[in-house]
Design a binder for these strands. Structure first.
Lengths: 336, 336
DNA sequence: TCCAGATATGGAAACGGTTGCATAAGGAAC
DNA sequence: GTTCCTTATGCAACCGTTTCCATATCTGGA
């Protein structure tokens, strides 16, 4: 194809001048600039980012590590990351790494270690010290979403507090027989999200003077997971709780579908609360704690780009808490 | 960082030899190879793909254009694309382009036109002749998923046939009062997917000697979209059909939720069939036409890589039909 | 013994940009 | 009329690989 040398020749200037004219860096007279631009458009010149990266060391592309694509939180984050990065002129290269996959090491050694990215965003993946160290040594800034990583700036909601808030909402309505349906061990999710939400639940219960023993039931972190748990939990009318705190909206939807199939009225016979702010929540009239993943993604991009602009001042490691808020709908009420 | 020159120096060989030893191309004695590899691991050498691309012209990375990330079909395709490409050593760079977005031109001119990708996969995006021409001129192979693009190899199901099959299933059960709930104009989906499915419905109806006039109702191509359409459609018991063909499983779920809220029994009072093979279908006991997006993605990658390996023989333009199959569950039965 | 081919290695030229340094002209300040 | 700074441009080095070409050794077959 046509290289910048061709453009320079056609415009009657040196390669250096053509480069400056096209990139806008350095001194170029307006007249020369126009000549160069005209020549470039005439022969359909497009710059080679590879060649530029080679000398500048910057690739204008960001690597993203994410364990799921189809789960709501992650797809929302992904869409928002892509938009924000594209708007800033960055490419986004995606690595879909299931939590403890065998490919993880390969991705780090083979893909990330190469100098193809200016920075990395890790979504819901708890990086090891070795992995963080690798990126750090390469001088590549790293920002996390979803949980705390030592030495890395991360954006995350306070899972424990959110779970506690959800449970307290049920308690404040007068419920005392509350169950928590959350992720199980099989569903590997990093940052101990499941555990933190369970902890928040336990804290709220004991603060209210209630025992949380036997109040937790695990299930797959999906709608069918919640559905299965709901059928099992609500099957026996005598052991049915008056309220359920689901660790995610998707679980909550499954619980609601199961409850409806069993003829249980919501909220009069059963209150349900979730966490997420999923777009289907309104349709199911689900009370939930919203966590705004798109904002979390924007915050991560902002932090990463700031670190890229000022390599001197490394990203302030530490946790930025993303806000959450309770949205009350009609899936919760006082017990009968 | 350390370059291949450092490795060569440490191993006591020339850069050329070090390159051959590490890439495995050309003649290198076993002894020398080991020396080079040892030196490389010793100083933690990682190759720069940028520098390599510059001379080889191959980037080992593929660009993917996709209009949605969170919709089921697209997230499935995406996950499968990523796996297949990663397994073959390719990076995947993602461009999330809503159908008629303003950014589309910018992405093509600014991102895709650059020589950053060996090839492009377009998922559910109907590329214009100009866009196809641009990539073709750059010598970058292109494979499509979701519908026919002139001059490009594409993988797609037969939307018309699938819709017809779904409708025929309802007809064969004895239904005559059938409605089709599908995507609306606002929901911009390329390749006229909505129209094709409507056409399949109409063909089946008229083949059965039934009029399809007024049997179509549009809605957003989502669960809440189907829910809203269901509430509207099933609200009046006297105008209620005995069967509904939903253009997607997600719409079907919404319809089912709406029907259940209204106390309508499925399938005795209402049969519902969808298209997709969504993982929630089993939970809703939904009869559906499965379309296996992951396989479609695998086929696309295979086709693209074949084109990359043999630049001489260009990809056979044309359409490869991805198979679909009817899965019967208990959301459909004969009318009462 | 000589020669063709396979094997092994090095030197140097690419690939396509950016940028440091040198040069030169035009003002402004003294 | 110097001196200095700003503006404008060119030359050449450089980024980190791959690969072409040349050279040299070692086979084995004629």
């Amino acid at each position: 194809m046509s290289a910048i040398a061709d453009v320079a020749r056609l415009a009657g200037v040196a390669k250096a001048t053509a480069s400056r004219a096209l990139s806008g860096r350095g001194y170029v007279s307006e007249e020369t600039r126009r000549k160069v631009v005209d020549a470039a458009t005439l022969i359909g010149y497009v710059a080679s980012p590879n060649a530029a990266s080679l000398v500048t060391g910057r690739t204008k592309s960001i690597g993203v590590i994410i364990p799921f694509i189809s789960r709501w939180f992650f797809s929302e984050v992904l869409e928002s990351l892509e938009r924000s990065l594209l708007a800033e002129g960055y490419d986004m290269t995606l690595y879909n790494l299931p939590a403890h996959s065998a490919e993880r090491e390969r991705v780090f050694d083979f893909f990330l270690a190469r100098k193809r990215f200016d920075g990395v965003i890790s979504v819901g993946v708890e990086l090891s010290d070795a992995e963080v160290g690798l990126l750090h040594r390469l001088g590549r800034p790293l920002v996390g979403i979803g949980g705390e990583i030592p030495g890395v700036h991360t954006i995350a909601i306070d899972d424990t507090a959110a779970a506690r808030l959800a449970t307290e909402h049920l308690l404040s309505l007068g419920h005392t027989d509350i169950r928590h349906i959350g992720g199980d061990q099989v569903d590997q999710m990093d940052f101990a999200v499941h555990t933190k939400r369970l902890t928040g639940f336990n804290m709220a219960m004991s603060a209210a003077g209630l025992s949380a023993d036997g109040c937790f039931a695990p299930c797959a972190f999906t709608v069918p997971g919640g559905y299965g748990a709901g059928l099992a939990l609500f099957g026996d009318p005598h052991r049915r709780p008056t309220a359920v705190f689901a660790a995610s909206d998707e679980i909550a939807f499954g619980l609601i579908v199961a409850a409806r199939e069993l003829g249980i009225l919501i909220p009069s016979e059963l209150s349900v609360i979730g966490i997420d702010g999923h777009p289907y929540a309104e349709m199911f009239r689900l009370t939930t704690i919203e966590q705004h993943p798109r904002n979390q993604a924007r915050m991560a991009v902002e932090s990463l780009l700031r670190a890229l602009e000022q390599p001197s001042a490394p990203v302030t490691p530490g946790l930025t808490r993303a806000p959450t808020n309770l949205v009350m709908r009609s899936s919760t009420s006082a017990p009968r």
